[in-house]
Design a protein around this nucleic acid. Sequence first.
DNA 1: GACGTGACGCTAC
DNA 2: AGTAGCGCCACGT
Length: 108
Amino acid sequence: MAAITDEQVERVRALVASIPSGKVATYGDIAAAAALSSPRIVGWIMRTDSSDLPWHRVIPASGRPAAHLATRQLERLRAEGVLATDGRVPLRGDRCVRHVFDDEPSAR
DNA sequence: GACGTGACGCTAC
DNA sequence: AGTAGCGCCACGT
């Protein structure tokens, strides 16, 4: 059963909430940290969950979020201190995936 | 039960 | 380097 449980959602929420200002995480990294089956699931959770999570700190590995969100994303990120170049978020160095769960040995 | 859709990722050209 | 196509998983209709 490939149904997402509240636990998975809670995990993603915790990860996103653990992202410090001025830093951003990619869906893929969060999905891996949350042990999700696919990075798409993270996007689905964000879309469905209208929590106060800083979803704007979560960006795709391409550095270019969906057009309908890109504007909002970049503007919010800029307010956080993340300057986007040409509508592109610099994943280089700003990438920060807080492994809030020490269950991952790859957490360095 | 099946098809279409979607806050994505990676590889190939 | 940028663009295009395919693959992935879950949800909605």
